[in-house]
């Protein structure tokens, strides 16, 4: 076994090959979505096989590419309905959910990670247990609580509360696990220097936990961004709908406008990809935790 650095580094070419194969697997279905979106038509595409197809015929047939390029589906999505407004609502709700969810999750996760107190195990388990409830029959009681009791129907706040509470269990567990890996010595020495708990948390723990915070932020954002049934149920004003609700209009019931749906789906996935682009620098900023330990 050589200990030289060179041999420890994997050769990059095979890695790229593996990645490229997976890129094809990942992109292939998505390319169909793009094809449908840009086709200007409303049906899901099917493979066009010529008679006595050869290998190449079949290969050409399975390539996703629209017969005619058209952006009419995209323009229709925005002109037929107040889709821009719905995107804005989604953005407001998703950002607020992310902020609230990550904040609440950080404080609880920190307590679960750093303090030993009665009820800790039960509390942590209860977050997990909450994810086990099948949602089938929760809609009516949730409606009663949010709309009837709290009077938060047709408000941003109602959905923000529901979504952040939905996202919190995962966030707490994720962050707690990550906080556990951050050495305590750092905080203890800061404590000895007279720093308050809040200062320690914001100045020392949080910066070190950036990758985990990035993951939880992404997760909270997506929870709020993609949900439609509660948004459609709690909102009684057309101006308060969110983008996923708008998307659902295209494919419900008898009529199925897949072209519009695909176009809308592409539009709604752009912010998520953008958010990921923004967050990924935190995901890979493998700077700290270990470095300070050494």
């Amino acid at each position: 076994m050589s200990t030289s650095r060179r041999s420890q580094e994997f050769p990059h070419l095979p890695l790229h090959l593996i990645l490229l194969v997976y890129v094809v697997v990942t992109l292939y279905p998505l390319l169909w979505v793009f094809t449908i979106g840009f086709s200007g038509q409303q049906n899901l595409m099917i493979v066009d096989i010529p008679a006595n197809a050869t290998f190449l015929d079949r290969l050409r047939a399975i390539m996703p590419w629209p017969a005619h390029l058209s952006v009419s589906n995209f323009t229709s999505v925005f002109t037929e309905q107040p889709f821009a407004r719905w995107l804005l609502n989604s953005a407001v709700i998703a950002i607020a959910t992310t902020v609230l969810g990550v904040f609440l999750a950080c404080t609880s996760a920190y307590a679960f990670s750093r303090f030993r107190f009665p009820g800790r195990r039960v509390g942590l388990m209860s977050f997990l247990v909450s994810q086990m409830f099948p949602g089938t029959l929760m809609m009516i009681p949730l409606y009663i609580i949010i709309v009837q009791v709290l009077g938060l129907g047709s408000t941003y706040l109602g959905l923000i509360l529901v979504y952040s509470i939905t996202a919190i269990p995962f966030c707490v567990w994720m962050l707690k696990g990550y906080f556990d890996t951050i050495p305590r010595e750092l905080e203890e020495s800061a404590l000895m220097d007279g720093a308050s708990a809040a200062v320690i948390f914001y100045r020392i723990v949080l910066p070190l936990a950036k990758p985990a915070v990035a993951v939880t932020a992404l997760f909270s954002f997506m929870t709020a961004w993609n949900e439609y049934i509660q948004a459609a149920t709690f909102m009684d004003k057309i101006n308060m709908y969110t983008a996923p609700v708008g998307l659902k209009f295209f494919v419900g019931g008898f009529e199925q406008q897949w072209g519009y749906f695909a176009a809308g789906a592409i539009v709604t996935s752009i912010p998520i990809v953008a958010l990921f682009l923004f967050l990924q620098k935190y995901l890979i900023s493998g700077l700290t935790a270990g470095a300070v330990k050494g």
Binding site: I144, Y228, A232, V245, G252
Partner: peptide
């Protein structure tokens, strides 16, 4: 949206909302 319509009616209408 059609997919949410029946659920929305079931949730809201019997409660007078």
């Amino acid at each position: 949206p059609y997919d949410a319509f029946a659920d929305k009616i079931t949730a809201a209408v019997p409660r007078g909302r």
